[in-house]
């Protein structure tokens, strides 16, 4: 084989590898976002359909019963792994920012929305309702996480109630193995008593994985969906 053939084949291989790397960057930066947006819209549509069906079939269960903060809905079914059960709104991240919350924090689950730590409390109930989300790629749901400030509302709905949480801390930077941040009463959060808390986690720095960013919030208000959107979501 002549030197010419070897050199030519080698350069062609280099060009090919370069092209594949460029394609991979396009995939990570752009295509995962396209796929995630479709998947999240799909999850929200599924939820809405489920809720519409649920309220139609369950009918007027107990219309008069005013629900206290998080008083468990009578038909509290266990969250199903990998399935959506709530929608989250954070006006600080954009007025139209809304993402489905799925059960579990597996890689596969987090591609379709935010993930609820299965070992933590249920939405609106006593304890710590902890949720993880991507900072970058897969739709960049928590891209602007560092902009969250104390007092910002985090609103969730499970189809029967609106839960408005208020953030109490600035984003707190910690190490990836600091599982204490999702404890029922997280030590670093400043909370001293048991309560109904919310923890959001994402990665830090933006494109890295050396640290995690955390914010904590407490349940501020609860209202049934029939009462309309909570104040935090009205303009």
């Amino acid at each position: 084989m002549s030197v010419r053939v070897v050199v030519r084949t080698f350069s062609e291989l280099c060009i090919t590898v370069g092209a594949v790397i460029v394609l991979f960057v396009v995939y990570v930066l752009f295509w995962t976002g396209v796929k995630a947006d479709t998947a999240m819209d799909d999850q929200i549509a599924q939820l809405e359909e489920q809720w519409a069906k649920g309220s139609a079939s369950a009918g007027p269960g107990d219309p008069g019963s005013a629900r206290g903060p998080g008083a468990a809905a009578p038909k509290a079914v266990a969250y199903e792994d990998g399935r959506p059960f709530a929608v989250m709104y954070i006006p600080r991240l954009g007025f139209t920012w809304n993402k489905p919350v799925l059960e579990g924090t597996r890689t596969k689950t987090l591609k379709k929305g935010l993930g609820h730590y299965a070992s933590t409390a249920r939405l609106g109930e006593p304890g710590n309702f902890a949720v993880a989300g991507h900072r970058r790629t897969y739709g960049d749901p928590f891209k602007d996480f560092p902009r969250l400030r104390p007092g910002d509302p985090v609103v969730l709905t499970d189809g029967t109630s609106w839960f408005t949480y208020r953030i109490d801390t600035r984003p707190y930077r910690t190490l990836p193995d600091d599982t204490a941040v999702v404890d029922p009463v997280p030590e670093k959060s400043g909370y001293t008593r048991e309560g109904r808390y919310l923890t959001l986690t994402t990665c830090d720095p933006e494109w890295g994985h050396s640290h995690r960013l955390i914010v904590w919030a407490h349940l501020d208000e609860t209202q049934p969906v029939e009462a309309g959107k909570p104040k935090a979501l009205r303009r």
Partner: peptide, 15 residues
């Protein structure tokens, strides 16, 4: 290949 990159590590317990 994508999960081999660090962008997926957003939880504190690495599940």
């Amino acid at each position: 290949a994508e999960p081999l990159l660090p962008f997926n590590d957003v939880t504190v317990d690495n599940q």
